Simulated scan of single mutants.
Amino acid sequence: MNYEIKIKGIEPVLAATLRFSGRSEDAGKYFPDIYKALKGQSSGSPFFCYYNKEFSETADIELCVPVSEKKELRGIIIKELPRIKAVCTVHTGSYETIKNAYQALTKYISEKNLETDIPAREVYIKGPGMFFKGNPDKYITEIIIPLKNPHFD
């Protein structure tokens, strides 16, 4: 698959967050806890923030659901993720093949001699629903890797 890679500004986002340490495929089980605490009120696609510099079987992940207002929720932290400049691409297909998108990004970053930062984000634009799994071939995930010392235009 050919990936279109862009460098773009990502605006700040207010999100309900829950930190998780473990396998990324297990982290998604905790999204319902966030949605339940929010009573279904979200204002965008959910995403993961990955705080590991390198791939690891046990990842430090923050589950995030965009919200429109800051309010107290038990066990859930609401915080603003700052504006960033990032190298991005969109992966269409199952999560099992998402490594291909990361390989394309890694190659681009290396060729352009870019310095990256953490956390990387995976924004789940279209994925499995709460009740129906959906078709994994049609999942859409945006991968966002922040740049160090960005200059905003």
Rank of each mutant, 00 (worst) to 15 (best):
Y3T: 14
Y3G: 14
K6E: 14
I10Q: 01
E11A: 07
V13W: 07
L14A: 08
A15C: 12
R19S: 01
F20A: 03
S24P: 12
E25Y: 11
G28P: 10
Y30V: 12
D33C: 13
I34Y: 02
Y35E: 12
L38H: 00
K39A: 12
G40N: 04
Q41K: 15
S43K: 08
S43H: 08
P46K: 02
P46W: 00
F47Y: 15
F48Y: 01
C49D: 09
K53Q: 13
F55D: 12
F55C: 09
S56K: 04
E57A: 11
A59N: 15
V65Y: 00
K71W: 03
L73N: 05
L73S: 05
L73I: 03
R74F: 14
G75N: 09
E80K: 08
E80M: 03
R83L: 14
T89S: 15
V90K: 10
V90A: 05
H91V: 00
H91R: 00
T92V: 15
G93R: 10
S94P: 11
Y95I: 05
E96N: 12
I98F: 07
I98A: 09
K99A: 13
N100R: 14
N100G: 13
N100Q: 15
Y102F: 07
Q103D: 14
A104E: 04
A104I: 04
L105H: 10
K107Y: 10
E111P: 11
E111Q: 15
E111K: 15
E115T: 13
T116C: 06
T116E: 07
T116N: 05
D117A: 15
D117V: 09
P119Q: 07
A120R: 09
A120K: 08
A120N: 10
E122S: 04
V123C: 09
I125W: 10
K126H: 11
P128K: 06
M130V: 12
F132K: 15
F132R: 15
K133Q: 13
K133I: 06
D137Y: 11
Y139C: 06
I140S: 05
T141M: 03
I145Y: 00
P146S: 05
H151F: 14
D153T: 12
